[in-house]
Write a protein that binds this DNA or RNA. Structure first.
Length: 282
DNA sequence: CAACCCACCTGACTGC
DNA sequence: TGCAGTCAGGTGGGTT
């Protein structure tokens, strides 16, 4: 569900209500998610701590907590395919546990809940000083919306690679946070087919693709992310995104290309669908 | 190391 | 109405 724009939207919505609040209590219902939740460490380290910052690295949410003079801790949250963070005000009388709610941080008058039906998501903890060497962070490529990411980096990083463009973007090793939706959309806007070998992108095509990745991610953030028909993705206040209405190819197999009216095609590799317009994309 | 395949899990949807 | 099959936003581990 959640790619960079969805995670960024969640980050912003949570930041508004949770920043500066103090953790009163933590309840962990089950620990067997993608990685075991370190329940004991969380219980030891976080009660009484204040949320000092909420950042994002790729698709990872980084909650920075500080308590007294002890070293700052980071709680790392990954949404996997179906994860949600939801902030709810207790004054509203809303304290019942939701289905698939696994973790709840009680913060002043707010509850921060982690809900994840498929349990591909994760909650982890590390010292701020070791964040960059954490397994969830250390192999991430550059932030696509930063100046570090450009056509040159993409060109240099893709020579001699036998992978398809879409699959290369999904690995996140060169550029972080791009998932299946936005990889497909960026390929469309760049005029390249997602299944083309990435090594055969010309320098100008890399220039174009890097630019379109930035554009599509920014537009999607502006639209609050993509909420597909199952309604799975919502932000930290429970609001849906609307970027799904601006998809040009993703999930549109068999429909008319919005640019040239050809039929949008779907190809499958590795059990994942890629979408493209055979006329607009070469 | 790179490329590939797969498992991990639940729920929604499709077709019989 | 039910039931089997298919599919889904991610990603790391194992195997060639």
């Amino acid at each position: 569900m959640p790619e960079l724009p969805e995670v960024e939207t969640v980050r912003r919505s949570l930041e508004i209500v949770a920043l500066g609040r103090k953790v009163r209590e933590i309840v962990i219902k089950r620990t067997d998610l993608r990685y075991p939740i370190p329940a004991e460490r969380i219980q030891t380290d976080l009660p009484g701590a204040t949320l000092m910052g909420l950042e994002r690295r790729g698709k990872v949410l980084v909650f920075r907590f500080k308590r007294g003079r002890s070293a700052e801790r980071c709680l790392l949250g990954h949404l996997g395919m179906s994860g949600r963070f939801l902030a709810t005000e207790r004054a509203a009388g809303n304290t019942a546990w939701l289905k698939h709610e696994h973790v709840r941080l009680t913060m002043d008058t707010w509850d921060l809940r982690f809900i994840d039906p498929r349990r591909f998501g994760s909650i982890e903890l590390c010292l701020s000083s070791s964040l960059t060497s954490h397994p969830r962070v250390k192999n991430l490529g550059v932030e696509p919306l930063s100046n570090e990411f450009d056509g040159d980096l993409l060109f240099q990083g893709t020579r001699r690679k036998q992978v398809r463009i879409r699959d290369f973007l999904l690995t996140g090793n060169l550029v972080a946070g791009v998932g299946n939706i936005y990889a497909n959309e960026a390929c469309f806007h760049s005029g390249v087919r997602p299944q083309r070998p990435v090594s055969r992108l010309s320098r100008p095509e890399c220039q174009r693709l890097s630019m379109e990745i930035k554009k599509v991610l920014e537009s999607a953030i502006d639209a609050g992310g993509s909420t597909l028909s199952d309604g799975g993705y919502v932000d930290g206040s429970g609001n849906s995104g609307w970027f799904q209405f601006s998809h040009w190819v993703y999930n549109r197999a068999g429909e008319a290309c919005k640019r040239c009216d050809s039929t949008v095609k779907k190809v499958k590799d590795l059990k994942r669908s890629a979408f493209y317009c055979p006329k607009c994309q070469k």
